[in-house]
Design a protein around this nucleic acid. Structure first.
Lengths: 236, 236
DNA sequence: CAGTGAATTTGCGCAAGAGCAAAGATAATT
DNA sequence: AATTATCTTTGCTCTTGCGCAAATTCACTG
């Protein structure tokens, strides 16, 4: 295979046709189409806690995350952050066009160092029409977001803090879990504060909860690192 | 104007081209197209608390609500109900096709007597392609749902019970408000229990809250009837 | 390798709100 | 008009978990 392929406008050592073509949004495309699409793409490399875009910004681009995890966040008037959902590599985000919206309604902040591709929103319709796989992927993206948000609403509305935290951690372990000898490690830095923003509680309550689980051997957690040892036990 | 037009398969005294054509999903259609679409529609008339479809059902149809209000509800394992959002007349619902989903993920239950039209899901793509207004409307429907769910998540995660209840009632007053001399009346039966299911609390807390507001003259509420007298004051 | 700053742990007191129970009110039914 | 079912109110207790504060640990930087 003929390796390095240049990406516009920034050259990249690690992004290849093969990698991109595997991503759901670009499934079923032939090589020429992939090249065509990549020509139009902009590469974004962001450090931890940097944003791809902010709530209220004009929705000029849509994105596909290549690497790293991204939090989709809403900030309240008094500065509190609420994490609404997480984006995993291969998923689209910033797809305001799918909502007929002129502006982003949330902020996309990198949980860890990340890479994403973006395209001008004006290309959205032509992608939808020209690439069936893209249309399917965009619908699935919307669907899984809606599902995730539903689950979060039900969780917030009916469960106690402890259950909410457990559920949030298990979901992340599923989306961003990496096998280790210890157990499943969540593959990006995750503080008590972060978890509290996902579950609508305080970092104190999260800390207490996790300490207890640590004592019981259910999880193993150091500073901003979380390893789930007994996923089943957390369900109880 | 030539009045009664028959709807398939059930004849109807109150549904006319003029009414339907005004609905957002069918904006920009000419009379022939409206007739075409209505030919394919099924009419549903449901009583209060009856469902249009249930969570888990095969998503065979998509709907447009013509009259009445509909709650979109999720039920937890232990039978608790959570109201995720409300559908107003003119809006689409049951649009699993937009999520590339085979089944409904929630239950649609009529808050009051209601009328809806439905079409087989297999027509979704042809509607999307054939009627630009329909495509736009479906995106807007998804967008407003996502926005509403985001707001609910933020509300549940950061606000106290009292604020959540106030916000929920104000939203309904906006979506389903009818002007009266007393103030804005929510135009369908709404019990304390219903409100608690929207806000993730108990009917007791809702009752206490509303009683206080009643004493302060902010609302006026009898059994399953809610009138908002001072919307601004509820914001505090 | 010491120093600095961020993340975490933990204790304590308190308030919000859930849970339970019982009474009262309102609408529907016969 | 009497009966019944449903909805609502309200009091009381008890738990959850927040808010505040202080101590501690950990990672990074100079």
């Amino acid at each position: 295979m003929n390796r390095p392929e240049t990406l516009h406008p920034e050259k990249s050592e690690h992004l290849f046709h093969e990698d991109i073509a595997e991503l759901l949004p670009f499934a079923d495309l032939d090589e020429a189409q992939v090249r065509e699409i990549l020509q139009l793409a902009t590469v974004h490399r962001v450090g931890p806690d940097k944003t791809y875009f902010e709530e209220g910004d004009s929705a000029d681009n849509f994105f596909v995350l290549l690497d790293g995890f991204t939090r989709v966040v809403r900030t309240t008037k008094d500065g509190e952050q609420v994490v609404v959902l997480h984006i995993a590599p291969g998923q689209m985000f910033g797809i305001a066009k799918a909502f007929e919206s002129e502006n982003y309604t949330m902020t996309a902040r990198a949980a860890s160092k990340g890479i994403a591709l973006s395209w001008p929103s004006k290309l959205w319709d032509s992608f939808i029409e020209g690439y069936p796989g893209f249309r399917t992927a965009s619908r699935k993206a919307v669907g899984s977001r809606v599902t995730e948000m539903q689950d979060k609403i039900v969780s917030l509305a009916t469960q106690k803090v402890e259950q909410r935290i457990a559920q949030a951690i298990l979901r992340l372990a599923e989306q961003a879990g990496k096998e280790t000898e210890q157990g499943i490690e969540i593959d990006f830095p995750l503080s008590r504060q972060d978890i509290s923003e996902m579950t609508g509680t305080t970092l104190h309550s999260v800390s207490r909860c996790m300490s207890r689980w640590q004592r019981q051997g259910l999880v193993r957690s150091q500073r901003r690192r979380v390893v789930v040892c007994q996923p089943e036990a957390l369900l109880a």
